[in-house]
Design a protein around this nucleic acid. Structure first.
Lengths: 202, 202, 202, 202
DNA sequence: CATGAATGAGAGTTCATTCAT
DNA sequence: AATGAATGAACTCTCATTCAT
């Protein structure tokens, strides 16, 4: 039932690609098997079920992501640097595991309700706490605006980053770091020209 | 096949609610019928198929949306006002047809590929052209930043607005206009404090 | 439930047309209703069921047919004249009730097995007896060949006549009597030229 | 989708039997599966659809039939011998594939209208041309009567042969060759005793 | 007489999953 | 490791029929 871990990995990558392209429900195990060049039944030598493939893809992605996030959060940066680092790590993760991120984006709301995928909720809540705390620190430190509803701000930043997974294509003209830089610039400083606000400082 | 338009409307609203909550694929016609208090087969007196319900929901939403957008675009506003109006209309539409917007957000990428839903593509392209043109006018007029990749900016604003449909609940603490105002403020002016704009505090 | 007999008749004629064109199973009551310009449910004011329409069509046809056949059989003709009269009446019936005959041809084998349509079997057996007796009389009288299996001959003649309902179109270039004449000529005298049978002309 | 050809063959034979006995429309895939001793869904491992089973049955039958017909037509026989050979091959085919022939007889008129079954039309037309040409040759050669409408004659012979599939049971008291012989005798020489036509030759 | 809306049974089909080989 | 064949539950959809209006 387990077998060589490399084969699992290949099959999982294939499955993730198909899930991301067609949606989890619309993906039949036969499509995955076709893409892998084997028959549908043969997948069950490697995995318990279609759902367990999804599980492995998502938990693998979240484990890796939290490894990076935890490093950032433990580094003791100031709020702006923390946010910059979190956003940059997020875009890097999108670059590395685009399929998994796209699946997460699309399916997590439904999945969350099943006990098996309860960890999606946990992750979501840790994520929210980390962001809210960082934003609050930024407001307290006078580097973020105080006039905004902080939950709205959180959602704004969160969505803004992750939705990118739905259109991002690795190997495109912008590196993840470059995209992160521009996104951060928009998020932090806005799209409007600042010049007119303070011509003197320019 | 057509029948009294009121009943259709009720059933369509019910279907939209279920589609939005569970996803189109995961929604069985039985669930829709249960939610409407009739039997699954009875839906087929009113509609040709599950797909045609989806079609009617999405095209109805887009038609209404474009009615508003066209009015805004024809009004001859400057770029900032145009963007403010478009964003505000978008949040109003989310308020009025949350379910339809959520379905659109979640399913349109897959649907687009079917000929029947080709209008989703058309709409998407009109949308993109309208935004890009407005952003370019703003850059030319010196009210928007010129240092950003304009397509990135477009995606940023577009996603930022529509993803809200996934968490927005009508009748919540913020009116659509209030949410639009805060989103616009974040998008245009950024999340960072403009402290440096105030020469005194520097 | 009964109502004006003329309306029944119209509807029955419409139903027969559709049954003949599409087959009984493939005909939905909705198609019949469409052809009659009313809604499907409305047919049930006139008839108990789809099956009872079929029943009325077939029994009406057989009653009329047997009225003619009985007259022929009671007339005391010789075997050749009897066969000529039966075949001619058959083609006349095809001319008058083409749809009913076509339905009978196509559906009676299956229908026969249901108790409700047991009369199809009875009719079939009376038919067979009448034909076999006439053929036997002809053999005995020395006007029909004695070297043929009489049941094969019966089937040959029977099929030969009734299958015509599947291609016959009333108002075509041949009258039913003309078609009967030619069929009889083929059946009785054969397709081969008799010339060679006459040693003198050889 | 294709699988071991033997299993397909068995299942196809089973399906043909049921189609012939109950009619295509009245045959449910569950009935076929029951007859084959498997579950309905399992049929879809071997075939795409109920319709594709029908298709395979009919096209298989026509392919085989035309193999024989073409051999006959290419042999350069005279008209009488050609007709004798065609009729004999037809009865042999009825003997070999009774179910397929019965299905063809009953369903082809409706099926013909669907593009997928257009080959039924093609076959029908080739068949008609071959027969008409042979009959014309016979008339020209003075072996067939010239006083008959040749299309009527064609239909007469055609129907006469194929309808036999509806009552023929393989393994009965007459071999296909014997049935062919008697049919040919009736068709060519008629049912009436020739004696009276030419008393001198007796 | 006819409509409009619904019922409920059953149709063809799909699909995750199992298992002997 | 993989195949080939099957299972069984669920799905979308159809249709004869009912009935209040």
């Amino acid at each position: 039932m387990s077998a060589a871990p490399e084969r699992r990995h290949e099959l999982l990558a294939t499955a993730a690609e198909v899930f991301a392209a067609q949606g989890y429900d619309a993906t039949t195990v036969r499509k995955i098997a076709d893409a892998a060049g084997i028959l549908a039944g043969s997948l069950y030598y490697h995995f318990d079920s279609k759902e367990s493939m999804l599980d492995e893809i998502l938990s693998g992605f979240l484990n890796e992501l939290w490894g990076r996030y935890d490093a950032v959060l433990a580094a003791g940066h100031g709020p702006t640097e923390t946010i910059e680092a979190l956003v940059t790590e997020s875009f890097r993760e999108i670059d590395r595991h685009r399929a998994a991120v796209a699946i997460y984006q699309k399916e997590s709301r439904q999945l969350r309700e099943q006990p098996r995928f309860g960890y999606l909720d946990d992750s979501q809540q840790r994520f929210e706490r980390a962001w809210l705390r960082t934003l609050e620190r930024g407001v307290a430190a006078g580097v973020f605006r105080a006039d905004l509803d902080i939950r709205l701000t959180y959602r704004f930043v969160r969505d803004t980053v992750w939705v990118a997974a739905s259109w991002y294509r690795p190997g495109g003209q912008h590196s993840p770091e470059e995209i992160a830089r521009q996104y951060l610039s928009m998020v932090l400083e806005g799209v409007a020209l600042r010049a007119r606000h303070d011509p003197v400082t320019q």
